[in-house]
Design a protein around this nucleic acid. Structure first.
Length: 466
RNA sequence: GUCUCCUUCGUCUAGCGGUCAGGACAUCGCCCUCUCACGGCGGUAACAUGGGUUCAAGUCCCGUAGGAGACGCCA
């Protein structure tokens, strides 16, 4: 059987991390089954939908490299088709006009709640033959079954059942003639040939209502797979407080798309003890049936760890291109590329990578070093002496390459009975402005002799001025 | 309030009646080492709870507790 799935966000904000995972699971399932992955923008709420949100969603999906197979469907554009289906249902006696006002319905809900019943519309106009009140534009409500039981086998949740008495007569068409979400989803899923509906389990109860609507229309019902929501570290629904940032913000924070995919994939899904899973492998292994039923908490530490791993794996040129916009000046950018192998070992995000690379571009300010925590490393008499020795050593080097630099420095330390640390640490601060850096042999080599001499001399000058 | 779902180390999870309950992140210790990382080795750490079923239960059944989600003319 050929599979068609869809990701159907409403463009009322950025694509958050839960939505990204829903999209990923849909995409993986489609690719695994050799089916189609479609995109539908659910923009029927005209008040809250915006073009910028639509753009943000597209951008995020592109960044995550989740490609869709045909041009996206915009739900609002199909409103007349939806309305037509609603009227057809009225004609067939499966839906009805309801003239209750919003206030009246609210009253019904309040009353129901007060009596310990679920807040529901009470079906007042369902079978009423009264003449409709004048001047009231009605909504169309669906005639939900009132007795019996609905049993559905969800691909993730298993067999779920609901007493039909729990169902109420949902609104299909609003008083202003626009369709509601419940109607639009069902009509569009049918018209788009969706075979599997994979979405967050906040829609689980909607499944029952939509099921009956599919039946009433005489359409086949798709398979459902309701995946658990992602929760914040405190176990509550993920919110902005927790780091429920938009996918775009993870990009800005310096995460790689493959890290996000790998992390999101492992939330609720596992393949034995495998942790690092390539997208190719994920496509091969992924089955929606293997998704777990319990909600997962978002863990930034694990995401960071994974991102660090993928940064180390990434090609130097690619990393260089990615951090280039964050490097303050274009000058000496070539040094960053040359030093990338050393730099990428110690970064968990591209931001950290860029920050750690800055010293290759900008000369450290000796004044700033002096007022910082590393000042003693270049002002102690011993340190000054080591800096001078380093200066001389670098001046006298015949071949200025990494192997030669390392050999010369190690030999020098051995001959002079100096600890490598003692010689290298002052130089590290002088050359990079920090006590943390890539291998100093690497740094010296990438900076080149002239630049090293300039930086060390600048520090010596400062120390002498004190 | 009603309905639905969930519950294995702090976190993500493996487990599909018989395991010393495994891995990863985090954490702690050791090693490697020019700093910081990376890497390697090792440690601490979990079956929510009460009943069943069974020779045998993390695994099956029922209850309890805790957690989450849903109950719109939002999606």
């Amino acid at each position: 059987m050929s599979v068609t799935v869809r990701f159907a966000p409403s463009p009322t904000g950025y694509l958050h991390i839960g939505g990204a995972r829903t999209a990923l699971f849909n995409w993986l399932y489609a690719r695994h089954m050799g089916g189609k992955f479609l995109l539908r923008i659910e923009d029927t709420d005209r008040e809250r939908s915006s073009q910028s949100a639509v753009d943000a969603i597209f951008e995020s999906l592109k960044w995550l490299e989740l490609d869709w197979d045909v041009p996206p469907v915009f739900q609002f554009a199909r409103a007349s088709r939806h309305a037509e289906v609603a009227r057809q249902l009225v004609n067939n006696g499966l839906a009805y006009y309801c003239y209750s006002s919003i206030e009246e319905v609210e009253q019904m809900r309040a009353t129901a709640l007060a009596h310990g019943r679920p807040p529901r519309y009470d079906g007042y106009w369902r079978d009423r033959k009264d003449p409709p009140p004048s001047g009231v534009s009605p909504v169309i409500r669906f005639k939900a079954p009132q007795s019996g039981k609905t049993v559905i086998t969800d691909l993730v949740q298993g067999t779920v059942e609901l007493d039909n008495a729990q169902l109420d007569d949902m609104v299909l068409l609003r008083a202003d003639g626009t369709p509601t979400y419940m109607l639009s989803v069902v009509v569009d899923d049918h018209d788009m040939g969706i075979t599997h509906v994979i979405r967050g389990d906040d829609h689980l109860t909607n499944m029952f209502r939509q099921y009956h609507l599919f039946k009433a229309c005489g359409w086949s019902v798709p398979e459902f797979a309701h995946i658990p929501l992602i929760h914040g570290p405190d176990g509550a629904k993920l919110s902005k407080r927790h780091g429920a940032l938009g996918a775009e913000q993870y990009k800005d924070a310096g995460f790689l798309p493959e890290s996000m995919r790998n992390y999101l994939l492992r939330l609720g899904w596992a393949h034995g003890n495998d942790e690092i899973i390539s997208t190719q492998q994920a496509i091969e292994w992924f089955d929606i049936r293997d998704v777990g039923r319990s909600p997962a908490r978002f863990d930034m530490q694990k995401l960071l760890n994974l991102n660090g791993h993928y940064i180390r794996q990434a090609e130097n040129e690619r990393l260089f291109d990615l951090i280039r916009p964050w490097l303050k000046s274009g000058e000496h950018a070539d040094r960053v590329l040359a030093g990338m192998t050393g730099l990428k070992q110690r970064a968990q995000t591209l931001r950290e990578l860029a920050d750690g690379a800055l010293f290759y571009i900008e000369r450290p300010d000796p004044g700033a070093i002096l007022s910082g925590p590393n000042s003693k490393k270049i002002t102690d008499p011993a340190a000054v002496s080591y800096l001078k020795q380093m200066l001389e050593l670098l001046q006298n080097l015949t071949n200025f390459d990494e192997a030669e630099i390392e050999l010369a420095i190690r030999n020098f330390c051995k001959e002079q009975q100096i600890k490598l640390n003692d010689l290298l640490n002052p130089a590290r601060v002088a050359l990079t402005g920090s006590h943390i850096s890539p291998s100093l042999f690497d740094v010296v080599n990438v900076l080149g002799r002239e630049e090293c001499l300039v930086r060390i001399n600048a520090c010596l000058l400062q120390a002498r001025a004190l």
